[in-house]
Design a protein around this nucleic acid. Structure first.
Length: 302
DNA sequence: AACCGGATCAACCGCGGGATT
DNA sequence: GAATCCCGCGGTTGATCCGGT
């Protein structure tokens, strides 16, 4: 007997979200919170399945998302964590406040994998590739960009051997999350850092590199922990208005900061040019400018 | 200007696991 | 213990962007 689908898909909309749908979903969650994703689309008046709403919220609408490209420090941290956790993207993402598992997964598959191959490292085992393997990889990467089944199998094998370690990491992540309550940004704990440091010390060739990475990471974490969530959010809002924030998506589906500010300064543009609404997503900042952010943010601050 | 192919990333799908009945 | 529900995860797809020719 097969499993029932998560929802009946008859009459449900698929594909890219419109600004109107985003607005409905965000308003609903901000006003009501999340209790049951299955009910969210019905109550919010959306023709989407609950899964789709959840994904949209987690990967795009959540106000604490950190947009923009990954820094080298973050990339190195991802590599470090991937060497120990394998393709457990959600576990890896737990170490990066404001980043989603999807974002990290995409970044890994599109950039970091290549970077490691160029450096002569196997992205699956993180070990140096011998010449024969290098040859095979260079041939396969020129013919296809998709993940091979071999990769997949190796990933799974690797995953099996890491279950015990993962368990301890999960415990730490859980403790960390419980300690932080509303402050999602403060996820990594000192014990995480100690373990990462200890693990880094066991990898012989990259020891120095990892220590540098961890030093930088500790500095960032310290800065980060000085902020409480509401302070951070206020800064993000102020930065967005002044145009000095560093965390903006360059994604094509978002209006650029210049465009956003242009609309802020000239709201009539939106009424005059319907294509803004039809074809574009506002950035989070613009969206909130038009929808009384302060009121909505009370939900998060409380 | 038009086309092409690679890169990117949002979104979908199926599955596994925990909770509940 | 079995059946069912729901959530979350990881793999994959497909639309779009972008640079090269």
């Amino acid at each position: 007997m097969g499993r029932q689908p998560c929802c009946d898909k008859i009459g449900l909309k698929r594909g890219p979200w419109t600004i109107e749908e985003d607005h409905k979903l965000m308003n609903f969650i901000l006003n009501n919170g999340i209790h049951c994703w299955r009910m969210v689309p019905k109550l919010a008046g959306l023709l989407r399945c609950g899964k789709s709403c959840r994904l949209r919220w987690i990967n795009y609408l959540r106000p604490d998302l950190k947009r923009g490209g990954f820094t080298e420090v973050e990339e190195n941290q991802i590599i470090q964590l991937h060497s120990r956790l394998g393709n457990r993207w959600s576990k890896i993402a737990a170490h990066f406040p404001g980043r989603t598992d999807n974002e990290i997964k995409n970044h890994w598959n599109t950039r970091i994998k290549k970077r490691l191959k160029i450096l002569g490292l196997d992205p699956v085992t993180h070990q140096p590739i011998n010449q024969d393997q290098k040859k095979i990889i260079s041939e396969t990467t020129t013919t296809t960009t998709t993940t091979s089944n071999d990769d997949h199998d190796q990933d799974q094998d690797q995953g099996q051997s890491k279950v015990e370690e993962e368990t301890s990491l999960d415990d730490q992540a859980a403790k960390s999350n419980n300690n932080t309550d509303n402050d999602d940004r403060q996820i990594s704990t000192s014990s995480d850092q100690e373990e990462i440091t200890a693990s880094a010390a066991t990898t012989t060739t990259d020891e120095t590199k990892y220590n540098d990475v961890l030093d930088n990471f500790d500095d960032e974490l310290l800065e980060f922990q000085k902020l409480d969530f509401s302070t951070w959010m206020d800064q993000e809002i102020n930065n967005s208005i002044s145009g000095s924030s560093s965390s903006y998506s360059t994604s094509s589906s978002l209006l650029s900061l210049d465009e956003s500010n242009n609309i802020i300064n000239n709201p009539s543009l939106v009424e005059a040019d319907q294509t803004y609404l039809d074809n574009s997503f506002f950035s989070w900042e613009v969206f909130n400018y038009h929808h009384q952010l302060d009121q909505d943010l009370l939900f998060f601050k409380n």
